[in-house]
Design a protein around this nucleic acid. Structure first.
Lengths: 136, 136
DNA sequence: CAGTATCCTTAGGGATACTG
DNA sequence: CAGTATCCCTAAGGATACTG
């Protein structure tokens, strides 16, 4: 066969798919928040737990919904309450997230890098203290 | 305890550490290239296999060296040959990369999204064909 | 061959204010 | 409460040319 110029299309690659769908700056936290809240979290609870803006939160939740990781329910009332829950697909990503967190935790520890204490609470590396984990 | 304003420092979080160190646009490919080349790859071999610019490649390799994932050797000669190899630490990341690739491959397949054929060759989902995988 | 050096474009995120 | 709408800023990456 002669010279071929066939090259990678990185945009059709599973790594990039996962980076986009699951490993942005906020998505692992949003997903894990739903796990720790026993499956449902409302909009303002995300805000209380993370230094994220409304805009970025809304964007991320929309993308995750479009990717089939979560779904949204609105309970009527005044004011109405919107809850976000994990789908089966979203739940299936948890072990992978934990594996990534574990590898990162070990690498940072080995290198003597400081690790956020609240993150450790979220992930079971430190005892949870809800007085610290929620802004009121 | 009264109201506390303690919040996350996402920059001290293992997810972000891993995203930065291992999951950029190119790093999984650079790392896997070294695995498939039996541990050593020289600068231009990366260029031949990926649509990456010299500048971005150099930046990524430097960062990976600083993070202890790879190391560099220069063999004297005309021209000199520079080889990059995985460290123990870099090699230890391979199972995690495979797990992420697998999850992404399955998710994309389930959703009917097209997957890059060359990437599949790299990851053992399709038989390797070096005539396709190298630009000459 | 194995890089630097410049310059440019874009996506992701941040701050703030407004609305049903 | 649960979002939109604006505007801004920076970091990652791309194109191209140059060098020991």
């Amino acid at each position: 066969m002669e010279n071929t110029t066939m090259i990678f299309d990185v945009n059709r690659d599973p790594y990039n798919h996962m980076s986009r769908m699951l490993f942005g700056r906020w998505k692992p936290f949003l997903l894990m928040a739903m796990v720790f809240d026993e499956g449902k979290t409302n909009f303002s609870d995300f805000i209380k737990q993370l230094p994220i803006s409304h805009k970025v939160l809304a964007e991320n939740l929309k993308a995750m919904e479009a990717d089939g990781l979560i779904y949204r329910t609105v309970a009527a009332g005044t004011p109405p309450r919107t809850e976000y829950r994990l789908t089966e697909s979203g739940l299936s990503m948890v072990p992978l997230l934990r594996a990534v967190y574990d590898a990162g935790w070990k690498d940072m520890t080995a290198k003597g890098m400081p690790i956020d204490a609240l993150g450790e609470m979220w992930h079971g590396y430190r005892e949870r203290d809800n007085r610290l984990m929620y802004r009121t």
